[in-house]
Design a protein around this nucleic acid. Sequence first.
RNA 1: GCCGUGGUGGCGAAAUUGGUAGACGCGCUAGGCUUAGGACCUAGUGUUAUUUUGAUAACUUGGGAGUUCGAGUCUCCCCCACGGCACCA
Length: 993
Amino acid sequence: MGAYNPQKIEPKWQKFWEKNRQLCEVEEKSKKPKFYCLSMFPYPSGEGLHVGHVESYTATDIYARTKRMQGFNVLFPMGWDAFGLPAENYAIKIKTHPADSTKKSIFKFKNQIKSLGLSYDWSREINSSDEEYYKWTQWFFLLLYKRGLAYKKKAKANWCPHCQTTLANEQVVNGRCERCETEVFQKNLDQWFFRITKYADSLLEDLNLVDWPENLKEIQRNWIGRSQGMEIVFDLKKIRKTDEKFLDNSKFNNLEIALALKKYPTVAKIKVFTTRPDTLSGSTFMVLAPDGIATKKLEKYISNKSQLKAYQLSATKKNELQRTEFNRDKSGIALQGLVAVNPINGKPISLWAADYVMGDYGSGAIMAVPAHDSRDFEFAFRHNLPIERVIYQEERSLAFLNLSFIQNPKEVITELKKFNLYSLLLDDKGFKVELYKSSSSLPYGLIVEMKNEQEVTEYINLIQAQLKKIFWSEIVGGKYWQFVFSEKVLKDNSEENLAEIQKKLKKALKVLKRRKSFDPRTALLEKAIRRKFFFSDYVGWTIPAGLFRDYVCYAGKKGRLFNSTFLDGMSVEKGWQSMADWLVERNLGRRVKNYHLRDWLVSRQRYWGAPIPMIYCEKCGLVPVPEKDLPVRLPAKVDFVPTGESPLKNLKSFSKTTCPKCGGEAERETDTMDTFVCSSWYFFRYCDPKNEKEFASQERIRRLMPVNLYIGGVEHAVLHLLYSRFFTKVLQEAGYVDFSEPFLKVRNQGIILGPDHNKMSKSKGNVINPDEIVNKLGADTLRIYEMFMGPLEEMKPWDTKGISGARRFLEKIWQLQEKVQKEAPDFEDRMSTKDSQDDLKAKKLLHQTIQKVSRDIENLAFNTAISQMMILINAWKNLVKISVIDFEFFLKILAPFAPHLVEEIWQNLEHKKSIFEEEWPRPIEEFLKNKDVLVAVQINGKKRGTITLPVEISENEVRETVLNLPPLKKFLEGKLIRRWVYIPGKIINLVVN
RNA sequence: GCCGUGGUGGCGAAAUUGGUAGACGCGCUAGGCUUAGGACCUAGUGUUAUUUUGAUAACUUGGGAGUUCGAGUCUCCCCCACGGCACCA
């Protein structure tokens, strides 16, 4: 038998499987149920395989092998995502043609994959850069074009200066190129797009049909970003300069203003998108994106055009990064000459242009509700605009209690607790009354939260009695702003005093404004100054900004509306609908949806990709290449060093062609397609990889699709996985397939970190090379270890020492061969009572293991499957002999995990055929049952011992046994048994005292 | 900020419907084998306290409350980590 030598046996079995291809291939005509098991096809990089590949490939391999043994007709293919930028950049780096370097990389990759013993069906291997493949990629382009889903548009596109090409939105991460992290900027270009937005709703809703990880679904939902809201139409009035005073809310009452506005004719209308029509009454101004359509449309009415132009210019200079990250100062300018009218209350709404509103979302204009939207709030604060609250929290009233206003803080706190007023302390130390005496600058006060009117009343009674003489507390229903007044301030209404206080407040405001971060208290102070509505200068200072802002800007579900005419008293949800109905009835608005998802930009100005099959003819315009002329071949002899334009552009032999319609001179489109177009349909090709007439025959698609299990990385969440779903929906609509989702079950393998718990990277020197592991310890060890590390989907670090445990496990199994009793006793014998106790135990454990391993594989819980097999092996190791039948049972469940080792042992047991032709074992019920169970005994919920009880025992018998248990005597002596809980097979709990 | 996922020994992690927390592996400790080291084998290993050395008790699943005979698991509040979206109205 010799020692376990994976270096010798692994290549042997790999060759065997290659020769016996039927072991891995899907059967053409089969009555078995099909199972399509897939891992994402790799981009064959020059660097070769990494441990993350091994993780997902091993997981799918174990699953595929198991499914085959369980009688499924399994499709388990592999191929190469060979087109694309990285391959091209690598080729440029090593100064070869990408076709050659890719070929080499694939060769290397394939050898590495083969050394892992993966049971791929290599007869279905595909390569997206092969003519026979990209012919169909081009066919898909034409399909989309014919269906009006591919269009060319001059538009702002993401441009990566380093990669010298345009990028899809999905390939821009935080304003940077997904690949090289160069800052992306906007360039006006004529580009091809796929109309993925047409499918936004079904892409969103069909997520409910599939079994995908929740976070993955969530990423896609976020990306699609649907928000339901309303488009509301506002009348715009041209107003004379002299009448602009009417816009000042503080001087005129609402009726006056409304009447004044009526005089003016409506000169234009403006549409805005909002998700909160219920807050319409609180809208006090309107903001237009400086570069939006709305602004352009209204330009002619605006009297300060030059100021607008200047602002537009400064806004366009800022790139995306500056707009979002560095420019939160809410710049903007007022647009003069026009005023909008709030349709619900006739109040004037001033118009502003500001770059915090996006031109390409909704209509590029918003109704600002500063009291209930933090961005509008900031803008209103910055530009001194009115803030009108229309929502209060019905279940929550908040008061701030400055302890220095209180005569006896300790007593008040105790009282507050007694009244069950939930008090949130600003700081732990705030409870300590000493602090208020100290000169520490820490806040010393309480935020008191009241849940209902009764509590508010209790609070008022309590606090007013406790306040120091000069203070008065004015509380604080959900509707009110103010907190504590100084009586002194209120009583002394003399001009001097007011001026004095105004000065103080202004100074305070200045200090606040100087701070870098925005502080909502500033708005309070502003309002106080403007309205001569005074607060004690203490108050604003000691309220935590975040809490206060949440309170004021509250817009949540528990809110009720006020100051909102007919919506008053309604919940926000009801108000939403009522307002929507009201607006729809009067033709002032309609319910609409908006999306974050944009159309997919597919043009690339690079060489290594599938050419876009379109022709430009002087006479006929845009003409698609006829299907019979496909593929449009990618010429081999091209100088492909990137220049910012397609390298094919100056290659006359490529670009010059004749028009398929009129036969006249014409030019080809020279851009190539985004490589994600190639990968959006590859899983269809596996079904029928050699088909020359179709991308795959409908019959085969019907037989093999959709993919039942798909394993790959999350990084493709809004790229490959989204695009593939889009393609599938197009195919469904075009009648090629009869399902809407390509991947029924998706799982993401977790990232494997380096031994130092950091992400593996060359620069950190913590990269584990799977080749080295295979050479040193064997592929089976690597497979077992990676599967044993932890749950498939979790991120987990590599443990250099931990892998020896996997090897040891396999060694132990190898050693076990010596104990196998070759001459098998027949079944009757095995079931006979002659079996020793040990033997019976071993069998029981075996069948439990079969049960658990089968279940765990189904759940992709490979780590626990392996641990269960380890338990079995540790027990068997102590046996003198093992029956060959039992051992073979075990080998079958181990086979998917360590296929080489198992095949070798199987052969040693004098089997001629592969173990993978065997059927997956079922546990024998007889051995899963137990006569006795171990039950824990608790007294008052604490474990005090265990007891072995027969399964078939009456509760009374149990009770008798337990009460006479010697170790329990001391806990029960002199005690009364109040309660007796017996859960058969699990636990006994005695409640005594 | 909004949304999602998660938080259990020295480390990776187990734990069906609420029912003996820490399986399995690594590491560590002691012993055996060995010239030595490795490899291998045997036993032990959550923390703390007491201890007559046999053990006994208390504590323990991010923190706090609650439901229950019983909570890692259920409910509420809070904290932290990772991931997604983000002036998206």
